[in-house]
Amino acid sequence: MNKIDLDSHLSEALTAIEAARDLESLKTLDTELLGKNSATTSAKKNLGELNPEERKVEGKRINEIRDQIQKEILDRKLILAEEENSLQLENERLDLTELDLGHRLGHRHVITQTWERLEDLFVGMGYTVAEGPEIEDEWHNFGALNFPLSHPARDMYDTLYVDYGEPQSTLLRTHTSPVQMRVMESQEPPIYSIMPGRVFRSDTADATHMPVFHQIEALVVDRGITFADLAGTLDAFTSAYFGKDFVTRLRPSYFPFTEPSAEFDIRRPDGTWLELAGCGMVHPNVLKAGGLDPEEWSGFAFGFGLDRLALMRHGIDDLRELFRNDHRFLSQF
């Protein structure tokens, strides 16, 4: 192959490369132009027929042409790859807003959400979570909690009784406090426990009452526990749950199972007070009923409505909504 051949070969090759419309034909060209049977390869083979001087010049020339072809193929390949990629992307174009069918997870009930939030908070303060039966005996719900038989304080609770054992011996627990007794019966102090649970009262359902609702109770029994500890713990809880903007207040109150007893109020940032919890020092008779010596151990307890915290958090104005289970309600939280 002479020099002119090479030049025209190059220009033909470049034209062909330029004309390649896809990677497939470019690959064929690559073989044609640079492969074993290509013009340049055979030209190289024929170099031996030339004298050394010509061979040197011609060889160099062939290599230059091959390099150039190779480079052109590579460049062309990049362009074609980019084109093909764009084409694929264009062909696969989707309108994602059309595909958003609003698939959703299920939702934990707002009571569960509040319940778990409270559990986590107290666990962080070193408490365990205790549970007890919802159908209780009279002793755990009242007797052990220092409600003497026919004591008017029992009237504060509209108790629902069930057909089990002696009449009025078995009831739907009216508060979570019987779990205090069950904890004292089952473990030695120190006790740092909360007791969330479902409770029952003979209340007609309205915006603020349900015959079924939920409470959470805390019990601490240890050596040297004081009323100041109760007050401080309630403060710590309030700032952790509600934030620092809430002021707290304790007012004297009465519960048979605590003495001194108190109501725990918090003041909202808007200045209004909310009665949050009943609390007090565990009554010596309750410690005795739990098998503990009130001279050695002292403790505090507090309890409050869990549902109301759920209502407050979400601005729900009707307690009944929590138990109606309307999907339009459930799926909001």
Partner: peptide, 17 residues
Amino acid sequence: YSNIPRTVPMSALTGGL
């Protein structure tokens, strides 16, 4: 009640579920 100090007892136990 408001004149009683506020303290928080330290639980020597580990909390948990």
